[in-house]
Write a protein that binds this DNA or RNA. Structure first.
Lengths: 246, 246
DNA sequence: CGCCGCCTTGAACTGTATCAAGCAAAGTGG
DNA sequence: CCACTTTGCTTGATACAGTTCAAGGCGGCG
């Protein structure tokens, strides 16, 4: 019942009994993967949609010079490309940052659900639109903020997203990233990330050790990162009636 | 007939007579806007989908300090958020970079087409997935490349996109941007953009004056920008049969 | 004509990268 | 269970890409 997909999508709409049952069915058959493995590689043409139930994953691209850029994080409740079957091939890879539990939903099942459960279809569409909004906000982050603000913003975003799926307790949550990966996310070197983190600790903003982040002063962190959560579209829309599933 | 939407979407699929006619109908009623005006503002909840027929537009966000980040360019053939009616409000604004001709497609018409013309629906979905891929590539651009490569990459991307809609002739096309706007796109100051452009001119890579960009050596520019067009998904998929419209 | 937006140039400054080394914790294999 | 390796974190010194500030020029437009 209490699965992260249902939980996440519920912040967009209320599901019928039937909807909820269908969503839970989807998550019945799961596979376990170990940290560090890749779910999908650039160039692949997957025939299932992967849906993350436990653990963290990330989208990334490699560059000719061996550098890597992380372009998104996936946390429990997130889907890897609902409509991947439209494009010819993946233009990026998806790797796992922790051991993970994943449900692979065959294309046909996916299509059937999208057809027969408009409310679910709409909620999934909402989720992909939010993903897009997150990409835009990352561009803002990389283009306009200094190192300190960049990381502050990232931490705020992950806190909000993790909270949405019930994985934050007392402003504390899993963040299974190395400092180098943080750097590859916001376009900094690991050395500089290290120094920024130290400053954050010194200023009693956060604690980060092992794979756990504790945010001590979220208001201040939001201010520093110029974080405004509206782009996450967490609030319910006023009315959902009379909406097509597109 | 020869309208940029049809032309763009044709690079994804072949339309039937009926599809083409419907697409052309959409572009029958157009509005003209002048350069500098805003099509949609952050916070709006538009009830039409705007579709750009002539001219350039851009998505942008303002920051508390007054800085601006450009998060996308829209060129003829591009749509502003097909499914905007899913989200509660716009999380960014869309402004015009030149005088423009725009078709406003009422929500109901949009929904009707999506329902009754699966091939069009699929093509539009393809277009939004490409938009998303472009966002990811921009993140890579901002995170991993130096000023010279950033601008080289941007110019290559715009050249490919403009070519797709038939607006490039002899490697020359409209680029109605100030140096400051270029800077707001890739996260540089206008001063530095200026110096980079001068270097590009000195090295006979481009000419840029007025609002026209000429690329003299696209191969070299691609190499400098590490540009690889696969993320634009310009190639046809092998088979389009037996696909749902999702 | 005179103003204003945009481009250009120069000089000084700084945030972040680079390079290099050391250290601690966690695996790994014998 | 201990040596060994690996991986991630930390620190310092130095270098430079890109910023900031400031001023001048030029072309288009009211």
């Amino acid at each position: 019942m209490d699965n992260p997909l249902t939980r996440k999508l519920s912040s967009f709409t209320d599901f019928s009994e039937e909807d909820t049952r269908r969503l839970n069915d989807l998550c019945r058959n799961t596979d376990s993967y170990i940290s560090g493995s890749d779910l999908i590689m650039e160039g692949d043409r997957p025939d299932s949609v992967f849906f993350l139930l436990e653990g963290w994953a990330y989208r990334y691209k490699f560059l000719p010079d061996g550098n890597r850029q992380i372009v998104a994080y996936l946390i429990p409740g997130d889907l890897c490309d609902i409509h991947i079957f439209i494009l010819k091939q993946m233009d990026h890879s998806i790797g796992l940052l922790s051991d993970a539990k994943v449900a692979a939903i065959p294309k046909v099942d996916m299509l059937e659900i999208l057809d027969s459960h408009p409310r679910i279809a709409q909620a999934l569409l909402w989720a992909t639109l939010v993903d897009e909004a997150v990409l835009r906000e990352w561009i803002v982050n990389m283009g306009q903020r200094d190192a300190f603000s960049k990381l502050a913003h990232l931490f705020c975003e992950m806190c909000f997203r993790m909270r949405q799926v019930g994985l934050v307790h007392a402003n504390q949550f899993d963040l299974p990233l190395t400092q180098e990966q943080l750097g590859d996310t916001v376009g900094l070197t690991k050395v500089h990330v290290n120094r920024v983190l130290q400053r954050m600790r010194r200023e009693s903003l956060i604690s980060l050790s092992g794979k756990t982040l504790v945010i001590h002063d979220i208001e201040r962190l939001e201010k520093i990162g110029e974080f405004d959560s509206t782009y996450l579209h967490l609030e319910r829309r006023p009315s959902l009636s009379s909406q097509s599933n597109y």
